[in-house]
C-alpha cells in the first residue's frame, strides 16, 4: 500500500513545487529582479558609502585638504597609494612645511579595504561612487588625485 501512497505523495509534492514556480510565472510582469544595467544608467544611484574609487575633492579655488602626512600610504596593504612630496615654504608663516607634489593612486592594485580613508586625519580623500572603472590601457588606472597647480586648503592641519 505504501507503493501507492508514495506515488500520491510524490505527485503532490511535485505539483506543490510547480505551483511555486507557476506563481512567479504569472506575476513575472512586475516581478523581474534583474537590473537592465546600461539602460538604467541615468537612474542607477550607488549608496553614499559605496566604495567605487578613492577621490580627492577640491574646492572651487582648486584647493584640497591633503597635508601629505602619508598615513594612508603607510596603512595601505598593497602599496596602492604613493605620495610624492616636497618641503615648501609656507607663505604666511615662513616656515618650511611638507606639501604634496603628486598623490598617486594605483586603482589596479586597490582592494577597496577603506583603511586609507578611515585613517586620514583631514578627510582629504573620500570614496567616489563611480564604479565603471574599466579602461583599455592599464596605465590609465594609475591616477594622480590632486589637480595640477592645486594647493592645500588654508587652515587644514594634521
Amino acid at each position: 500500500m505504501s507503493y501507492f501512497s508514495d506515488i500520491y505523495k510524490g505527485i503532490k509534492t511535485l505539483l506543490t513545487g510547480m505551483s511555486v514556480t507557476g506563481k512567479y510565472f504569472l506575476t513575472s510582469r512586475k516581478g523581474a529582479i534583474t537590473q537592465q544595467y546600461p539602460d538604467n544608467r541615468a537612474t542607477l544611484k550607488m549608496f553614499d558609502r559605496f566604495r567605487g574609487e578613492v577621490i580627492m575633492p577640491h574646492n572651487e579655488n582648486n584647493e584640497h585638504r591633503c597635508t601629505g602626512c602619508q598615513k594612508c600610504e603607510i596603512i595601505c596593504p598593497n602599496g596602492t597609494i604613493e605620495i610624492i612630496w616636497d618641503r615648501g615654504i609656507d607663505e604666511e608663516t615662513g616656515k618650511k612645511k611638507k606639501k604634496i607634489d603628486q598623490f598617486v593612486y594605483h586603482l589596479s592594485m586597490c582592494t577597496m579595504c577603506a583603511l586609507c580613508i578611515d585613517v586620514c586625519p583631514t578627510d582629504a580623500i573620500i570614496w567616489g561612487q563611480n564604479f565603471e572603472n574599466s579602461v583599455y590601457d592599464r596605465t590609465k588606472l594609475t591616477r594622480v588625485l590632486n589637480e595640477p597647480e592645486s594647493k592645500l586648503m588654508p587652515g587644514v592641519e594634521d
Binding site: 529582479i33 550607488m46 549608496f47 558609502r49 559605496f50 566604495r51 582592494t111 577597496m112 579595504c113 577603506a114 583603511l115 570614496w127
Partner: peptide, 22 residues
Amino acid sequence: FRDREMLNDIFEETCGARLTMN
C-alpha cells in the same frame, strides 16, 4: 539570489562593499 540581494544592499549601504566588507 533575490533574497541575498536585499542583504547585499544592506551591507553596501552600511559599509560600502557587498562581499568583502572589511
